[in-house]
Structures are given as C-alpha cells and as structure tokens.
Design a protein around this nucleic acid. Structure first.
Lengths: 297, 297
DNA sequence: TTATTATGATACATTTTATGTATCAGTTGG
DNA sequence: CCAACTGATACATAAAATGTATCATAATAA
C-alpha cells in the first residue's frame, strides 16, 4: 500500500464516480480502477459497491475513509514537525556555567530569552567548575557553557566572547584600607591572598596572579577557596584579601567591602564555550541568542 | 511522497546506516540513497547527517521520525477499521415496528441481542403503522420493520417470518360471556366489533374479518380504533367486542377480559420487512440476529 | 420496445520510475 | 601508508504505473 492508493481512494469516495475521480487526479480511468482494485485486494475488503450509476462506499469503505483522512492529516503534521525540527524548535540544550559567571546579568538574560524564543527545547542547567565544563563540552555531555576563559582558546573548544568585567578588591571591613573609595593593587603588597584553586579555573587564576605582578606585587596565597563565590566569605573571616569580578560584589556578605581598583587592573572575561563540531541547530540558535543579547546592549 | 519513502526513512533511522538499512529492506544501497534524497528534496529539509561512519538523524529527522511512526500506526488502524466496517460493526440501523408487534417478546429480545452483538451500531427505533413502515422501507428511510403481514409478500418488500400468534377475544367484564374460559367466534354473532382502520394494517384487518366469516359470523364494525393497542380500551367502555393477538393481553386494561378462541381462529403473523436491494452488512447482521433468536426458541 | 448514454472492467502498449550494477570519493583505523 | 567502510554518482535494467482502445452492463430517452 502506498499513499497514492489512499489519495485515489479518497478521490473516488468523494466523487462517487471513477471517471470523474480519474479526471480530478489527472490520470485515465482504467489505471484508477486498477489501483483501487489493488488496494481492495491488499485489504481483502471491498471498499466500493460498483453501481450502474457510479460507485458508492461500502461500510468497510466508510470506516476506512474516516481513518485515511486522519493519515493525511498526520502526514502533513509530520512535514510541519520536520520543518520545525530543522528550525531548532525541539530537542534539548544542556547549558553549564561556572559559579562566578552566573553573577553577570547577561547569563540569566540570555537563558531567559532563549527559553522564550524556543519554549519546546528542554533546557538543562548545571553549575560546574571551568575544568569540568570544558571536559563535558569535549565529551559532548553539555552543549554550551558560560566560562571565564584565558586569552587563548582552549584546545578543541570554540569560544565566543560575551563580556569583560572589571575586577574589584575584597577586603574585610576591619582592614586598614576598607574605608577608601578605590585602591591600587600595589597597596596590597605582602597581604595574604584568598584565591580559588588553579585547577578549577586556571585562566582567571593566571589573570589575577599576572595582574598583581604587573602592579609590582608578588602575590602570596594565604588561603585556597573551594570556589570563587566563597572567596568573599573567607575574606570576611580575615583569612586574607582578594580580587573578584565586579558582578560578584552583588553577593551580600557581611564583614567585607568591595573596592574598585585604581590603575592597571586584571579584567575577567566571560565567554560561551561550545564544541567546534556541534552542528546542532539548537546550539546554533543558542549562540544566535547570545549574539542578539550582546547587540542589544 | 509515498509510504515507501517513509518505510525507508524509518529503516535508515533505525539502522543508522544506509547499507544495513538497504539490506534490511531488501534492496541495494544506491536506490535507497536515491529515495531518501527524494524525500529530503520534497520536504526541503535534511533528515540525515551523512557521517563517514554511517548516518545520523538531524533534529528535523528526529522530529519527523516521531510523527512518521504515528502515520504507520494510523495506517494499521485504518486497515483494522475497514475490516471491522466490513463485519458490520459500525454504521446505523433504523428499525420500525407496529404498536402491536412490540408486544411479542421476540421483538425486544432480538433488538437487545443485536445491541449486545454490535454495540457500535447506532440504533433508531420508530413506532409507525404498517402502511407507513412499508413506505419507509421502500424509500429506504428505515432499514427493517416488525410488521404484521398478510399471506402474500407486499410489493418490493422482503419478508422474513418471525412468529405466528393465536388471537384472543376481548370482552368487557360485564359481558354475558366474560365468565367463560374460552369461546368460539360463532358465539359473537351480531356483537358490534371494535377494530383498527383497514388503512393502518390491511393484512391483520382482513385476517380478522376472514376469520369471523369462516366461523359463520358476518362481522359488524361498531367502532374504528385509532390503533390496535387501543382496542382493549374501547372494549372496556363497552363500545363492542374484538379479537387481538394473544401477546396484547399483557396490557393491563381494567374492565376487559381476554379469552382463548375455541376452534378455527384467525392467527396473527409477525415478520421482519426489509428492502430487497439492501446489501448493507448491518442489515444482514440484523437479519442474522433474527434468525438466531428464532432457532434458540 | 429500441437506441443512446454512462458506467466500470479488461487487454495490451507505453512511459515512468524504482531498482541493480559498477564505481567513485571521503574518512577511519591499523 | 593501505585496507576497510561509508554514502554518492552514472548508467543499465526491471517493474509498475499509466494510457489507449474496447467491452459488458444498466439506466434513460425516444
């Protein structure tokens, strides 16, 4: 059975006449009779009563017609769904982000706008450290990640820059400089530094260390933070001082102050990482959404 | 697009490999590639990503596949419905009956058993007089009717005998013979007769008149009853006497008694009338159900 | 009644189209 | 680098749909 048989069946059913149906289809009458016969043979059921004045549906034909109409509706629907699938309306998108990236307002903004544009895409969000994010991008366990990259793209990863944030000094409120409006990094000479493990985010780590060196400070690590977002808490209990991307000052941590940096200061980059071989339309749409949100700024 | 394209599409989707899919279908690989290409051209969407190690569904392909599977389920369902339609499971059956016929227990019994056997058939029941029933059978406004036929089949009507009922005398309780157990028709000489209009049911009418004549009684019509079922009520108010098919004695009419007839008595026939050109399976099934109920007796 | 018209079915020729064969180009893995 | 496997291409072949001519039947008109 082919759709052709069903198209012809509908034509005969609607016209009630083989000749007119054949004309409507655009073929001669004999092949139409032949095709209908083939259909009836396959179903082992007579679909039409051949009358001297045309052809009328049998009960079997009536019952069949109702369902055949559904078949064609479903065929049209399948076509539509293919097009919508091609447009990236379905599927899933697994997004990862580092804890510190989430504080940039662009991150939730981009995710919200994507959800709105593609409500049928199943979104997964996971907070991981940069190393894990890159590994999962490489193994295609996640599709895109907001990370803090270094100046060079990691191997086998495609980077799209999103934002560059100034960094701010974090001091305990009791610190001698806590009352200043802004300070240069050079004023933190010999202060023990609270910093996240280099393993978790090597690029931002290096950026910070390099920043201090540029200002003539030889940084001394006083305490390793389990993650960037907990740096402020460690500073609050006076385990040292630190610098963090500006958006992190939004965390309300009692016992610390955030101060702008005067002069040459390290900057924190925020980027979206994807797999270079990911040709998925969903991922492409996500990157498109990222670009749109950058333009609107 | 033909179902063939969709069958091939499913094979490639499931195998993830054109060669294996072709083998499974039972054709060579090149025509399979060609057919898939045709499908993609028609949809104007790429369904597979051709990889050096096989073929993977695109998002469009994924979305399409889900709906194509539904198409084939629907095709199977349509086939099933055609078969069930051929078995007379669907459609409608318009049954008519005369008021007096409904009193024979076989009538509700047959209708009940048909309903049970073919619950999806839409049943219509209409009570009409014999003349109207026959007209509606001829014009195919109803499919079958329980009527009281004469000895010969009416023109253009197919008759199937169902039952032959004895007739009983109906007397007002105050009648001189009301206390008897059974009487001959001849004892009703000169009694005014209550009878339905000949127009409404000529066959039973003639049967009654003829029955009286055979017993040597020249019947005198005292009152025309609007329908057979109201004869007893007219007898109750002493407008005359009558005879009715035995099952009608089941009506509880105060003021009348029903007595068996001694000797040669008219008999009331009960039959199913159908159109001779009605080849509908539903009607056929109904007649089959009638036959089954007769055998069980 | 007879002639005419309209119906779907049949027989066979023709065209279209799906399929088969041979081969190619690209990628992967040893 | 070579061998193996992938899908694509070119062209020949076979199958199947379609077209043409005609028939048998039944309803309708003369």
């Amino acid at each position: 059975m082919e759709l052709r048989h069903l198209r012809y069946f509908i034509a005969v059913a609607e016209e009630g006449n083989f000749r007119r149906a054949a004309e409507r289809i655009g073929i001669a009458q004999p092949p139409l009779s032949s095709q209908i016969k083939d259909l009836e043979d396959e179903l082992e059921v007579q679909l039409f009563r051949r009358l001297p004045r045309g052809a009328a549906l049998t009960e079997a034909g009536e019952a069949f017609l109702a369902e055949v109409i559904v078949i064609f509706r479903q065929v049209e629907f399948a076509k539509q769904m293919a097009l919508r699938g091609a447009a990236g309306e379905f599927g899933r998108l697994r997004i990862g982000f580092t804890g510190s990236a989430a504080f940039n307002e662009l991150v939730p903004k981009i995710i919200r706008s994507f959800r709105k544009a593609y409500p049928s895409v199943a979104l997964t969000l996971a907070e991981l450290n940069t190393r894990q994010l890159l590994d999962q991008i490489r193994s295609r366990s996640i599709d895109a990640a907001f990370i803090r990259p270094g100046p060079t793209s990691p191997d086998g990863i495609k980077i799209t820059m999103v934002a560059e944030e100034p960094m701010m000094v974090v001091l305990p409120t009791g610190h001698r400089l806590a009352k200043e409006y802004a300070i240069p990094l050079s004023s933190l000479q010999d202060e023990p530094l609270v910093l996240h493990s280099r393993e978790l985010g090597p690029d931002l780590y290096d950026e910070v260390i390099e920043g201090f060196r540029r200002s003539g400070v030889d940084p001394v690590i006083g305490q390793i933070a389990p993650q960037i977002t907990s740096i402020a808490n460690l500073v609050a209990v006076e385990l040292g001082v630190s610098i963090v991307p500006a958006p992190l000052s939004a965390i309300n941590v009692p016992g610390v102050v955030f101060l702008p940096i005067i002069g040459d200061a390290p900057r924190a980059r925020l980027a979206v990482a994807t797999h270079p071989d990911d040709h998925s339309v969903v991922t492409r749409n996500f990157k498109q959404q990222v670009a749109t949100n950058l333009q609107k700024r």
